[in-house]
Amino acid sequence: MRAARQRLALEPSPAARMLATLVLAITVVISLAPFFYVVSTSLKETKSLFSYPPRWIPDPVYLGNYLALFEKHPFGWWLGNTLAISAIVTGLKLVIDGMAAYALAKLDFSGKHAIVTALLISVAVPLAALLIPLFLITRSMGLIDTRLALILPPLANPLGVFMIRAFIAALPDELIHSARMDGAGEFEILRRVVVPLIRPGLVVHATFIFATQYTTFLWPLVAVHDLKKQVITVGISSLRAIFTVDWGLISAASLVAAAPLTIIFILFQQAFFQQSLAGALKE
């Protein structure tokens, strides 16, 4: 009897539970409604988009929008370019940011403070302010309208360095000292000791870089003109004609474009939760 009363005291009341369920249900509907609407729109012909009353479930189901993406537009190129460039930038940035972060977190050298300050200042400068000088430099290197123009500039973004530096700084110095005394060089320490221990942080950072690269718009718009070398964000914006907007086509393009990123987030969500709770509890 007493145990049952104690259990009841710790659990929410039925009314509270009902209210929570109702609020959550409304939130889910509000969050997913636009998504379902885009799915519905992508499966309809343009002429039936404005029928009244609006129909959530398309009838008949029209796959022409998806076919048109690949048959009438270089959507495959856009998707391939975006995935490849995002993957390459992610891989390179993990290496560059990891090495820089390790040096700033665990090595002592003259000018370290000045370098950190310079990096911090550069983070504060918005891309829009850098657009013209970046374009001029890229053009002088002969890289305008190439895929390299989309790969090289993002490597210079120092934001990731600070993120990884925080993970590495949290590692005990004794681990590094011990590895040095055992004969490991700095690259070996980074590879064998540091990287395995900050893996969840690296996964989060990699996902963040990938998502940023995947959704970038302004620089590709400026640096690349050939549609076959373009990325998916610019490509989708080009689907909008001057006088008409094919919402069915754009909806289909958006869904296909969102798929890889969604899959990545689902695959690595465990790392996100793990990293967000890291340090919250005493070990």
Binding site: P172, H177, S178, R180, M181, D182, G183, A184, V193
Partner: peptide, 17 residues
């Protein structure tokens, strides 16, 4: 260098990997 001094150290926190 520390690795060439041929001394070994046991830290207070053990510093196990």
């Amino acid at each position: 260098r520390p690795s060439e001094r041929n001394v070994a150290m046991v830290f207070q926190s053990y510093a196990l990997y």
